[in-house]
């Protein structure tokens, strides 16, 4: 049988590497074939999600940031400083978290989706035209964010002017100085060439990019137990693979950026420099609870407990 799998990045980026490994595993352990559809080939993030919900696609990778309009609780991954920057800790956390593997699994199931995995794509870095050493440097900076209310709140709290722009306009916007900053994981800064139009990379440790892989639930439930095992095993194998693939990935990509643009500065903020970002995070967390109510608070508390348990 032919199974179709769409994701939000290109074939050589993290989601594409995960998908390729997943495909290899499925094809090695069954006689099914997996067809891969990278970014844009079947529509945007919301489109492929709908296609997966309708069973047109069997698998889909969508980041919770885009799922927020469907499952508001998924925005919890945008609460700053909730997730640690330690990749080892993160990899244990995603694997064992009750919030993810039980609570979110149910939330996705309500949308007709079987959550297979959530995995990290790396620490989010800010890239800007001017150096950033604290919140005061973001003052008056038009900072591009995804169209997501919590992200807008975050950058408002950091003191910037959050400017929601579709991704297609970011490169040109930075080049023409319509915006002066944006954030993304390190590998994405290199692969999308954003470093060409910004001069400073800053790590404030405020977030880790999370993404989720799902199957259409009806399709998954209709599989034989043997096939379900093939899918789950493939997801587990791809998870382990992507975690080890990402070890040192950020550093490698950063080296590539420095090689391509030696004048690029890279700053990791000190604890003291981070303090105002961390203060702002409290407001954002309150905003998240205000937006999602009791169920949001329950997920938030569970996530915190899970993080402690996987230390």
């Amino acid at each position: 049988e032919k199974w179709r799998y769409a994701f939000e990045e290109s074939l050589t980026e993290v989601q594409g590497v995960y998908a390729t490994k997943f495909k290899e595993e499925i094809e090695a352990n069954s006689d099914h074939e997996v067809l891969l559809f990278p970014y844009g080939t079947l529509g945007e993030s919301a489109d492929i999600m709908e296609q997966a919900q309708a069973g047109i696609l069997q698998f889909v990778d969508q980041s919770p940031g885009f799922t927020g309009s469907l499952i508001p609780e998924a925005q919890v991954f945008f609460v700053p400083y909730l997730l640690p920057t330690d990749q080892e800790h993160l990899s244990r956390f995603y694997k064992n978290s009750k919030a993810i593997n039980e609570d979110f699994k149910d939330l996705y199931a309500n949308q007709g989706l079987e959550l297979l995995n959530m995995f990290p794509e790396g620490e989010v870095a800010m890239t800007t035209k001017d150096p950033v050493t604290g919140c005061e440097d973001l003052n008056e900076v038009k900072f591009r964010v995804m169209t997501n209310p919590l992200l807008v709140e975050s950058y408002k709290a950091f003191g910037a002017i959050p400017t929601p722009l579709p991704w297609g306009e970011v490169y040109g916007g930075l080049q023409l100085n319509i915006i002066q900053g944006q954030e993304n994981p390190t590998f994405f800064l290199y692969s999308t060439k954003i470093y060409e139009v910004t001069d400073h990379i800053t790590y404030a440790g405020h977030n880790n990019f999370t993404t989720a892989v799902m199957a259409n639930k009806e399709f998954f439930d209709g599989l034989s137990p043997a096939d379900q095992k093939v899918v789950n095993d493939a997801a587990a194998a791809a998870y382990d693979y992507i975690v080890s693939y990402q070890q040192g990935l950020a550093e490698q990509e950063l080296d590539k950026i420095k090689k391509a643009k030696p004048e690029m500065t890279v700053t990791v903020l000190s604890e003291e420099q981070r303090s105002c970002f961390k203060d702002a995070a409290k407001d954002v967390e309150a905003k998240f609870i205000e937006m999602t109510g009791d169920s949001g608070k329950a997920i938030l508390d569970q996530l915190k407990a899970d993080l402690k348990a996987t230390m």
């Binding site: 919301a46 919900q53 309708a54 927020g68 309009s69 469907l70 949308q111 169209t147 209310p149 929601p164």
Partner: peptide, 17 residues
């Protein structure tokens, strides 16, 4: 009908899609 059933809202305006 499908979009309505999914309950999807516009991220900024928060009105049903």
């Amino acid at each position: 009908g499908k979009v309505m059933a999914s309950g999807r809202v516009l991220p900024a305006l928060q009105i049903p899609v």
